[in-house]
Computed example of a mutant assay.
Amino acid sequence: MADICDWSRICEKAIKQQKKSRGIKRDHDVTEICLHERKLEGVCDLKNYLNLQFLWLSNNRLRRIQCLTHNYRVTELHLQYNLLKDISGSLSHLTQLRVLMLQGNQLADLEKVIKEFRKMQSLEILNMFDNPLAQETDYRHYTIFCLPSVTILDRKEVQSKEREMARKGYDQRNEMVRETIAFLRRSQGPPDLYYKQNPQMRLTTPIALREHYSMCRPSTAELDEAFENRVKTKAMWTYNYFNWQKIPSPHERRTNRNVTIEPEILSAGFK
Rank of each mutant, 00 (worst) to 15 (best):
N174Q: 12
D138K: 13
S92L: 03
R26V: 02
N105T: 00
P148N: 02
E12S: 10
L55S: 06
A208D: 14
T143H: 03
R257C: 03
K115E: 13
K16T: 08
L107D: 00
Q121T: 14
E211P: 00
P250H: 03
C67S: 13
I207Q: 05
W56P: 06
R217H: 09
Y195D: 04
Q172K: 07
D154V: 03
V231Q: 09
L84F: 10
P190V: 08
W56Y: 13
M165V: 11
T95S: 11
V158E: 01
K39V: 09
T31H: 06
Q172A: 08
L203W: 04
R253T: 00
F145E: 06
D6H: 15
T143G: 05
E12K: 12
Y81M: 10
H78P: 05
K16Q: 15
L57H: 07
D224F: 02
Q135N: 15
K196Y: 01
Y213T: 08
N256G: 05
R22T: 00
S21A: 15
K20H: 11
Y49S: 01
L193I: 05
P191H: 11
D3M: 04
R173Y: 09
I15A: 04
A166I: 00
L46G: 01
E76N: 14
T204I: 06
M120V: 06
K19W: 01
F129Q: 15
L94D: 05
K115I: 01
C34E: 06
Q121M: 09
M101T: 08
Q200N: 09
S8A: 14
Q66P: 01
M236T: 14
I144E: 07
V158R: 05
C44L: 13
A134F: 00
W56S: 13
E111I: 04
